[in-house]
Nucleic acid binder design. Structure first.
Lengths: 245, 245
DNA sequence: GCACCTATGTAACAACGTGCAACAAAATCG
DNA sequence: CGATTTTGTTGCACGTTGTTACATAGGTGC
């Protein structure tokens, strides 16, 4: 592979500079950025192999950015944050981050984890790094991330609400992996800092699942796509492919 | 099958049991192991989606095992260790681990990181991944693993519950071999592991067997397929053939 | 044969998880 | 502002799973 290109996203200029400098001294191309807009322009402009993403970016939220990135493409993301509580870490993983590193960190260790993520991405390089993967297909259905529209196998357009779209995105990012209600809720509540108790969230996820099923399942009574894992949660149990627009 | 299979490698039986139990309670198949030999036999024997590998394994070294694994295969590895110094973590990443978790850890966080690694692996190789949707035939009956349905000799569809399906799968995997109630229970992971006396688990298996019989036996009073081995357990006493879909 | 004991079959029940309709609250839009 | 859509909550129905009590089958010793 060519020299890895790493996007360093942090609004603290000192931290940003330290990371870019260190990464450059260790054989990578480090590209600084401090806002989602800059991230997008880099993604549009050229190849990016990895994103180091700060969680607290001024008024922007790194977790939300990560979730949006996941919806569009498959570029590896390592969250970097001073928030070290377990539920905050879990929120990072829930939105699809590949790793979560807390500040302050040992630069050498950061480098090791960067290489680990790059290594895995490289080992399965066939489909990774595809740019502009904004259309998902599953079981004959099509989901266009940009317009947040769903097309049935008959090409009939189905409108999803915001919550239903968010649920579908989480599921599409984790096909064949059973997700607990808590994990789904955490992925939604990206602002974080919520409790992680199962009881506190009530049955809203169940109802939401039912609503999504009524729109995408041929027979909601016997779901083929979004299946229930009794005592655990729910699974998106069909294959998902991501394609270019 | 869609459920992720995770190999839990630790020589501390208590820790191993805790991890396997927790993973099983969260929708994965957890396979315990305590030595490199056992790891190899699992890798030879069936699909493994992820390995949780303790660093200190008696006289064996988890790092070396991980390195050897990397030379041969591409299975994701998460190192688990009480060694938390930076250079020890870096050693883990250096031998190709995908993540490095230090003991003691929050099980929920472990689960989040397990799923993060699984998610990336799945996304990267979605096409390589093939479902083994096998079809079993026995005594005129057909069992389709994917839909968890059985078709009677008359091609009448019969729906099985989760537990009944699990029982049938265990039986289909062990035709003509008498299984004790404990063995069946362990296969379900009713309790997590061994220490269950026959009395402690009650009669749930008996009742379950009865329920399955009522669905697949022509005359449940005189079972021809799922026979009782008095004082021992139960036997699936007809031949089984398995085909790929 | 009989009495006796133990293992198993199973109906009835309880505990629990989930689907869903109906309602309430909140957000959105004109 | 009211109208409409979306989202969360609640109660109930229903299926699944484990427990219990009792009936029955199989075995043993007499």
């Amino acid at each position: 592979m060519a020299i890895p290109r790493i996007l360093v996203v942090d609004d603290d200029s000192e931290m940003r500079q330290m990371m870019t400098q260190f990464l450059r001294q260790n054989g990578t191309i480090a590209l600084p950025a401090s806002s989602e807009r800059e991230v997008q322009s880099h993604l549009d402009g050229g190849r990016v192999d990895l994103i180091l993403l700060d969680v607290m970016l001024g008024d922007e939220n790194g977790l939300q950015i990560c979730r949006r990135l996941r919806e569009e493409q498959d570029v590896p993301v390592i969250m970097v944050s001073a928030l070290s509580a377990d539920h905050q870490r879990m929120a990072g993983y829930a939105v699809g981050a590949d790793d979560y590193i807390t500040k302050p960190f040992n630069p050498e260790l950061l480098l090791a984890r960067v290489k680990a993520v790059l290594s895995r991405a490289r080992r399965s390089s066939s489909l990774v790094h595809r740019r502009n993967t904004k259309t998902f297909r599953f079981a004959g259905w099509t989901y266009r991330a940009k317009s947040q529209e769903v097309l049935s196998p008959d090409n009939i357009q189905v409108a999803l609400s915001q919550r239903e779209t968010a649920l579908l995105q989480v599921l599409l990012a984790n096909p064949h992996i059973p997700l607990t209600r808590t994990e789904i809720a955490v992925a939604f509540d990206v602002t974080g800092s919520t409790s992680q108790s199962t009881e506190a969230m009530g049955r809203s996820i169940d109802v939401l699942v039912g609503r999504l099923r009524s729109k995408i399942e041929t027979n909601p009574k016997a779901p083929q796509i979004l299946k229930t894992e009794r005592g655990v949660g729910y699974v998106f149990s069909v294959d998902v492919t991501a394609e270019d627009e």
